Simulated assay, not measured.
Amino acid sequence: MFEQQIAVNQRAKFGQTIQVRLVSNLGRSQAYYRDVLGCKIDEWGHAERDHMCFLLQQAVSIEDVQPNRVSQKRSDYPTEWEGPDQAWDTFIHVTWEDLDALIEEVRGKGGRIATEPFTGAHGNWEFKNAYIQDPDGYNLVLGAMRQIQDK
């Protein structure tokens, strides 16, 4: 009986999320994710660093490579923010202290910084974001948040 109660109260868990990314040139993308973003690339096409993981796959045609477009603004977020001004393909949480260091690392390895780090606020939270763009135009948004401290 006790074992049945535990089973009923337990919730199944999702595992690690791996984003599948169709690319126009698999070799070029693997080199970019390895050499610029510092990912480990395996024989399956996984590009992995820290908690970030992609599965790079060769697109059948260039038309299949479709980075996201800018989303529609919303007025029903819990703060005054209405949504991003640019397209997001992947949002990667980083620490406030790591964001600038990661941008400089990518820049130093020849990566394209599509949007330099910028700050703003939503309610009681301050954010800092920057956009890295891969060879196919996918935007990887590095985002940091911290609670605004009372002055």
Score class of each variant (00 low, 15 high):
145 M>P: 01
120 G>V: 01
93 H>V: 13
122 H>K: 11
99 L>Q: 02
51 H>S: 14
48 E>N: 08
69 R>G: 11
137 G>I: 03
129 N>R: 01
150 D>S: 08
87 A>D: 02
92 I>F: 01
133 Q>Y: 03
111 G>A: 03
81 W>A: 15
141 V>E: 12
129 N>I: 09
55 L>F: 15
34 R>T: 06
133 Q>A: 11
31 A>L: 06
19 Q>P: 03
5 Q>A: 15
70 V>N: 00
14 F>K: 07
52 M>E: 08
69 R>A: 14
68 N>E: 12
91 F>K: 05
23 V>E: 01
49 R>K: 12
124 N>I: 13
93 H>K: 08
43 E>A: 09
88 W>V: 15
149 Q>D: 04
144 A>E: 00
48 E>K: 14
9 N>R: 11
131 Y>R: 05
29 S>A: 15
56 L>M: 07
140 L>G: 00
29 S>I: 04
125 W>A: 10
2 F>Q: 15
1 M>P: 12
129 N>V: 09
114 A>T: 04
62 I>K: 15
110 G>L: 00
3 E>P: 06
151 K>T: 02
64 D>T: 07
71 S>D: 11
128 K>I: 02
12 A>D: 10
99 L>D: 00
148 I>M: 08
115 T>N: 11
8 V>G: 05
74 R>V: 04
103 I>M: 08
139 N>W: 02
86 Q>V: 13
26 L>N: 05
112 R>H: 12
26 L>S: 05
94 V>T: 09
74 R>L: 13
97 E>I: 01
140 L>T: 01
121 A>H: 06
134 D>Q: 01
145 M>S: 04
57 Q>S: 12
131 Y>W: 12
118 F>D: 09
1 M>E: 14
62 I>L: 13
23 V>I: 06
75 S>I: 07
151 K>E: 05
133 Q>F: 02
45 G>M: 09
21 R>I: 13
48 E>I: 11
3 E>Q: 11
120 G>T: 01
47 A>S: 09
130 A>Y: 02
102 L>I: 15
5 Q>Y: 10
117 P>I: 03
102 L>M: 13
114 A>F: 09
69 R>V: 10
59 A>K: 03
39 C>W: 05
76 D>Y: 03
108 G>H: 08
90 T>E: 03
42 D>V: 06
126 E>T: 03
40 K>D: 14
46 H>G: 07
11 R>M: 12
